[in-house]
Write a protein that binds this DNA or RNA. Sequence first.
DNA 1: GATGAATGAGTATTCATTCAT
DNA 2: TATGAATGAATACTCATTCAT
Lengths: 199, 199, 199, 199
Amino acid sequence: MAQEIREPKQERSIEKKNKIVQAGYELFSEVGYYATNTAQIAKRAGVSTGIVYGYFKDKRDILLDVLSIYVDNAFDPILSLMDGMTAPLQIRKLVGDVLDKAIAIHERNANIHEALHSLSHSDEAVNAKFIQLEDSITLRIAGKLVALGVNFPTINERVHLAMDLVQSFSHEYVFDHHPYIDYGAMRSLVEDTLVALFV
Amino acid sequence: MAQEIREPKQERSIEKKNKIVQAGYELFSEVGYYATNTAQIAKRAGVSTGIVYGYFKDKRDILLDVLSIYVDNAFDPILSLMDGMTAPLQIRKLVGDVLDKAIAIHERNANIHEALHSLSHSDEAVNAKFIQLEDSITLRIAGKLVALGVNFPTINERVHLAMDLVQSFSHEYVFDHHPYIDYGAMRSLVEDTLVALFV
Amino acid sequence: MAQEIREPKQERSIEKKNKIVQAGYELFSEVGYYATNTAQIAKRAGVSTGIVYGYFKDKRDILLDVLSIYVDNAFDPILSLMDGMTAPLQIRKLVGDVLDKAIAIHERNANIHEALHSLSHSDEAVNAKFIQLEDSITLRIAGKLVALGVNFPTINERVHLAMDLVQSFSHEYVFDHHPYIDYGAMRSLVEDTLVALFV
Amino acid sequence: MAQEIREPKQERSIEKKNKIVQAGYELFSEVGYYATNTAQIAKRAGVSTGIVYGYFKDKRDILLDVLSIYVDNAFDPILSLMDGMTAPLQIRKLVGDVLDKAIAIHERNANIHEALHSLSHSDEAVNAKFIQLEDSITLRIAGKLVALGVNFPTINERVHLAMDLVQSFSHEYVFDHHPYIDYGAMRSLVEDTLVALFV
DNA sequence: GATGAATGAGTATTCATTCAT
DNA sequence: TATGAATGAATACTCATTCAT
């Protein structure tokens, strides 16, 4: 008989659920989903193994929540950056700031992006959530840009492409270290490419 | 006592080892590394489970070889495309052809890229091999381009960036289906961006 | 520290305890003892999981009380049937009525008999209680029969055997459906056999 | 991915599978299905826990095989008893011999009957197998009786009822010890009742 | 070299019971 | 008394790896 899952209303419970998600986030990020076991999550969260299943249906269900806070962590800095902008938009400055933020996010969030994204393939629900979260981000950014006077018939496509580019570059910058790449020069190239998408 | 790993010299043995790698390639691609077990690999390869450990130290060791054929599968079509090119290079045509090939590769190779890439994080050797393979590809492509008269001080960076972009777009194109994206328009954007990197 | 078990004196408490036993009775009957968990019992009884342990030492302790109401439920209709009888006893009519009642009881009480009886083997206390309850029923029925003028030196044995037979047949009738058995004919046989025991 | 279940052909494998079933049989009989865990079964069978799942899909699958050997154990002595009989059948002697055998079987097979039967309720496959096994036994016995000249339009019903009676009595005789029952007298009653069914 | 049966450590999940409120 | 969140021991099952043949 399936255990009843608590949707915590009490502050203390919400806090506990958050601790579990946070622990999952950290561990999935550090060693990946498969190398993390529920006992470790519980231990790091400072709770018993049993209560994990009071808040989550199963291990994968934790992942779904981790996904949400990942997206928040990953995009909030960039969104708030844009919130502070006023017309007329200085695209080149924005692009530079976004790259700075994105690199900082990658440094703090380690491997979580690919750890999560790779799970999309084996799990339809993860995939769906991932896509849905990407959607909302893309549309919010596109909306902001339009509001700031940057408009193109293909604004959604441009934003999405820009996000892919920022993501790829930040990952390379933080994790891969190809000896023949001058990362300063590469960054300039990326900036030029991004600017070209919005002027 | 650790089993001796054979480096097969006999043709029949090489063939058998290849079958195992191929089976691993297919299964990792279809369902991912963790959802594949060695018994399945052996079965699909048409060998016994025991002999897998005659050719490979462990499951991860298969992965390392899978990585190699992945890169071959993934880039050979593109490299041979370039082999056929003669100066003067028609960049726009090349870019279009490369995208066609890349999409075809993604369609055939399913999820292997991220399945493999995500393992980099938990395994230094996988990471190293991944980077090294990417390196050789980048340098070969850059070399070809230079030979064809496309030269920039930052040619390596441009090629690498272009590869990231092609990879991102192909993945999106084949796997994600964001409803608000016009993939035809997005492709045009990608082509323009790629062309801009090499003119 | 072992929790004090309350022997409830307040009416409200007695009612609550009864609700728990009733819930246990229903669930053990529907799905069996092992497939029932205490949370379900509490939920169906409309109480908290904690308070269950205010009234019962453990899950098995609920079982012991369930056993009591089972026997009451199972035999009361038959006993009251006999209460209404007056000498001279019409055995054949009684036997028919008893079978009707027994079948009705089986239909309403589903699998409880075997669910409970099978636990006798792993639990001496359950076994003892089961036997003791059977004893009192047998002796009461035997007493009634004697009072009604049906007397044999082996009246206890006859009653016990009759009870076994009624139990077996009712179970078969309600749960097993052997295709080669004509249950009408079987019932007649059972009736004849029962009558033969008391004339 | 579901593990491949071996259908053992080799003698050694068959022997190993049998050991597991035998261990399951003993443990289910001694302490019941739920109080037995797979590690205990493996240990008693002298094998590893893993290999249990090489021969059986799951714990319940062991139960299904245990069921088969239970029925063999339980009825073979009685069937062979009848095999030895020749017309004209001496019903009273047969009945006495059958009771002796049945009691011996109960003594050797302990609690297995109810342990298994009680599982019928929570498991349709167990129930189906149970009924099917009972069917084949009933029909075989009925066939033998007819061959020996004992014929009734309701022979199947008579045999089935007799089996129930023998089962009930043997169980009582071996396990329950009601102080007010004279088991010798009860046995005589059972014998008379059985004889009455076949003359 | 080759087989595939065997091993046993490892893991997600459940649930009777306790305890802070 | 009463609650229901929390505990953690227990258990079915998997799978990389080994080994007898």
